[in-house]
Amino acid sequence: MNAEALVEVVLPGTVEPEGLQIRHGAVPAPGPGQVLVRMEATGVSFAEQQMRRGRYYDQPPFPFVPGYDLVGTVLATGDGVGRDLAGARVAALLKVGGWASHVLVDAADVVEVPPGIGAAEAETLVVNGITAWQMLHRKARVRAGQTVVVHGANGGVGSVLVQLAHAAGVRVIGTASARHHDALRERGVTPVDYRGDDVAARIRALAPAGVAAVFDHIGGRGIVDSWRLLAPGGTLVSYGSASTRDDEGSKQWPVLKLLGRVWLWNALPNRRRAYFFNVWAGRALAKDRFRARLRADLTEVFAAARRGDVTAQIAARLPLDRAAEALRLAESGTVVGKVVLTP
C-alpha cells in the first residue's frame, strides 16, 4: 500500500469541465470502522453535472472531490472491521469522493459485488440501480401488466428503470431524443420524442386510460403534465430537476417547488400519489435501517444483472485523469447509459 500514490480529481468551483484539477498525495490509512478501497470504476452521474455549476441542492462547499459512487477492492481495514473484507470487491454509494484512486469508506456502507460482474458493469448499477429499484418497487410498487412512463429512458437511471420494469412484466413508454429510439425499441420500449410538440398528448394517445406510474427527473413546469398522465391509483415519482440545470439563482428553490407540489397533490382528495425521491432519505434519522435497505436493494439489482434481466449500459470508459473529457461527454446528451471512469 505504501508504494501506491493517491490521485484524485478536484472540483475547485463553478468551472467548465476543463477546470477540474488533478491532485496527488499519500494514500490514507483507514480509521476505526473504515476500509480503504482502491477504485476500479467510478462514474459520471447527473449530480456531478449539477455540482460543477453549484446547482446540486446539498453539495459541499468548494473545493471537493466529486464522485457519487464507486466499485473497487478493499486494500486495508481499520480497527473493528472483520478481516474477511480485505481483498473483497465492493460497491459504495458516497455522494462525493469517488473520483479518486483510493477512497476511505465506512465498512458498514460497502456492499460486496458478486462474482461474474465486472467493476465497470457493477458501477453502472450502484446509484442508478438503487434509485431505479427503489422508485419502481418501494415507491410506485408496480405490478405485471401495468404501463409506466420513463422520462429520459436512454439515460443512466432511465436505462436501468426500463430493464427492471420489463423484468417485472411492465410495459414502458419512454421519452428520449429521436436518435435513441431504435435502441429503445430493441429493449421493448415505446419511444416518444421529448423534443416534439405536446409530448403529453402523444403519451396520452398511447395510454388513453392513463398510466400506473411516471418517473420524472426533469422537474420544472413539465411535472404538471407528468401528474396529469396518471390513471386513478397511479404514482408520480419525481427524482430531479434536470430542466433547471443551467438556471441561475438558488439551487434549493427548484427542489422546494417540487416538494411543495408533491405536498399539495397528496393533500388533495384524489386517488393518485406523488413522491419526491431522494436516495439518501432516512439516512440521518435511521442510519442502520438506511444501510440495511440499501444493501438489500443493491443485492437485488446485482442478482437481476446476474440473471440477465439488466445489462450494464456503459457509454464510455475513460481513465481518471481524463475526467474533464468524461464530464463533457456525459453532458453532451449524445450517449446511452453511463460514462465510467477507471484508474
Results as ranks from 00 to 15, higher is better:
Gln134Ser: 10
Asp69Tyr: 02
Gly80Asp: 06
Val262Cys: 04
Val96Leu: 06
Thr311Gln: 15
Lys338Val: 12
Gly233Glu: 02
Val148Trp: 07
Leu85Asn: 04
Gly158Pro: 03
Gly54Tyr: 07
Thr244Ile: 01
Val339Met: 12
Leu11Met: 08
Gly333Ser: 07
Gly156Lys: 01
Phe277Gln: 10
Phe62Asn: 07
Gly33Ile: 01
Val157Trp: 00
Arg171Ala: 13
Leu93Gln: 11
Asn154Cys: 04
Val37Lys: 06
Val279Lys: 04
Gln163Ser: 04
Asp69Gln: 10
Ala108Trp: 05
Pro343Ser: 11
Arg271Leu: 14
Ser45Ile: 05
Ala213Ser: 03
Ile223Val: 15
Gly19Val: 03
Leu70Pro: 06
Glu248Ile: 11
Ala140Thr: 01
Gly249Gln: 11
Ser226Thr: 05
Val90Met: 12
Thr334His: 14
Tyr68Pro: 05
Gly129His: 03
Val7Trp: 09
Arg221Phe: 06
Gly129Leu: 05
Thr42Met: 05
Asp109Tyr: 00
Ala324Tyr: 00
Trp265Cys: 01
Gly240Ala: 04
Ser159Gln: 08
Ser226Gly: 09
Leu229Trp: 08
Pro269Lys: 08
Gly333His: 07
Gln134Ala: 08
Leu104Met: 09
Ser243Tyr: 00
Glu186His: 12
Ser250Phe: 09
Gly67Cys: 06
Leu256His: 15
Val65Lys: 02
Ala3Ser: 15
Trp263Tyr: 13
Gln59Leu: 09
Gly260Arg: 06
Ala29Asp: 15
Leu6Trp: 05
Leu318Cys: 10
Ile218Leu: 14
Arg195Leu: 13
Met39His: 06
Ile130Ser: 11
Arg273Gln: 14
Pro61Thr: 13
Gly222Tyr: 07
Gly155Glu: 06
Ala330His: 07
Ala274Gly: 09
Ala207Trp: 05
Gln146Phe: 05
Leu230Trp: 11
Met39Cys: 14
Phe276Trp: 14
Ala167Gln: 09
Val279Met: 14
Val340Asn: 00
Val149Trp: 03
Ala140Lys: 00
Asn278Lys: 11
Asp79Arg: 12
Gln163Ala: 01
Trp227Thr: 10
Ala231Val: 05
Leu298Thr: 04
Val10Glu: 03
Leu230Thr: 10
Ala201Asp: 13
Asp225His: 04
Asp216Val: 01
Arg138Ile: 06
Gly116Glu: 11
Thr299His: 06
Thr175His: 02
Leu93Tyr: 12
Ala304Pro: 04
Ala292Asp: 14
Glu300Thr: 06
Pro115Ser: 07
Asp297Cys: 04
Val170Pro: 07
Ala205Asn: 08
Leu11Ala: 00
Glu248Trp: 09
Pro232Cys: 12
Ile117Gly: 04
Thr77Tyr: 00
Val90Ile: 13
Ile223Arg: 15
Gly240Glu: 08
Val340His: 00
Ala281Ile: 01
Thr77Phe: 00
Pro208His: 06
Gly97Ile: 02
Ser241Pro: 00
Val149Leu: 02
Leu75Gly: 13
Phe302Ala: 09
Glu121Asn: 05
Ala296Leu: 10
Ala296His: 14
His151Val: 03
Ala207Tyr: 03
Ala292Gln: 15
Arg271Thr: 13
Ser45Ala: 14
Ala86Lys: 14
Arg204Glu: 10
Asp309Asn: 11
Leu70Val: 09
Ala153Phe: 07
Val150Gly: 04
Ala168Leu: 10
Leu294Ile: 12
Ser101Leu: 05
Thr42Tyr: 05
Ile314Ala: 02
Arg89Phe: 01
